[in-house]
Design a protein around this nucleic acid. Sequence first.
DNA 1: GTTATATATTCAGATATTCTAATAAATTAA
DNA 2: TTAATTTATTAGAATATCTGAATATATAAC
Lengths: 93, 93
Amino acid sequence: MRTTDERKISEFFKALSHPTRIAIVTNLLKNKKCVNDIRDLVKVKQPNISQHLSLLKLNGIVDWHQEGKMRCYYLKNPQLIKDILEILKKDEN
Amino acid sequence: MRTTDERKISEFFKALSHPTRIAIVTNLLKNKKCVNDIRDLVKVKQPNISQHLSLLKLNGIVDWHQEGKMRCYYLKNPQLIKDILEILKKDEN
DNA sequence: GTTATATATTCAGATATTCTAATAAATTAA
DNA sequence: TTAATTTATTAGAATATCTGAATATATAAC
């Protein structure tokens, strides 16, 4: 039996606990991208990319908007992601 | 096939992707604690606490030293944990 | 409408994680 | 050495996650 806070925080970490999702998120740091662009950059098959994207969306990390026939995904809070990754890089793990 | 960086970062997140481990880590933020103290604070059975602690140790998040018959666990880089949790709290999720 | 393109969903098998219960190991005190 | 205390390990069942393959859906262009 744990607090809501502990669960929310651990859910956030779990959402980022897969190398492919880290790759997606770091690619989105620069700018929004559509699914097939992400697929090409991350080099993972499209259905799998979509699966990871939907998990990231479910956890409030990304969102998307339609542009023509493409879905553009973007980080909902890029500064948050940037700050956390920055701290981790500094830690020199 | 992912980069070493992506794997390391996702491993770090995975280590923190469980509510019990978040509870452990936030309790250790204040000061080091022995296993049974953690058990009492986090309210999880001792073997399970030990399992989570060993995972946190494996991932370089905690370490321990012996004090009499007790093992005192502490955060290896408390500032890192503090900073990341601080950022998440600010984000008001 | 049809076609092509872009993306999402579903299913199933493989793998990983989690918890509990039981037990083992290590340390200290007597 | 024995007993008590503290912590770790193991095994097994339940659950969750991950991936690939196949398929479905949505949008735009024609």
